[in-house]
Write a protein that binds this DNA or RNA. Structure first.
Length: 90
DNA sequence: GTTCTAACA
DNA sequence: TGTTAGTA
């Protein structure tokens, strides 16, 4: 799925999707032609990112949080990670 | 026609 | 964030 379609389905601009990647919040696969390939996991990630940004969290924190969250389809659930609690506290 | 990077407003 | 330039 190309960035153009991704942008429309997520309701965000292509510029923003590239910006998120720049901040380390997204890791789309790079095609041989240089294009970004987005999958379903990225759709969920964008939802998480937007929610957290709206909550006022800095992108630096969000990048680490994305590694601790899993989307089972319609809700986000914390992934077992020993250091999560202390990290959130910090 | 679409996407890419970098950079400016 | 939008947009533009020059490419691939």
């Amino acid at each position: 799925m190309k960035i153009g379609d991704r942008a429309q389905r997520n309701g965000v601009s292509r510029r923003l999707l590239r910006y998120y990647e720049e901040q380390g919040l997204l890791r789309p696969v790079r095609l041989p032609n240089g294009y970004r390939e987005y999958g379903e996991p990225d759709v969920a990630a964008v939802r998480h990112i937007r929610a957290m940004l709206a909550a006022g969290l800095p992108t630096a924190v969000i990048a680490r949080l994305l590694d601790c969250v899993h989307d089972d389809g319609d809700r986000i659930v914390p992934t077992a990670w020993p250091g999560m609690v202390s990290n959130l506290r910090r």
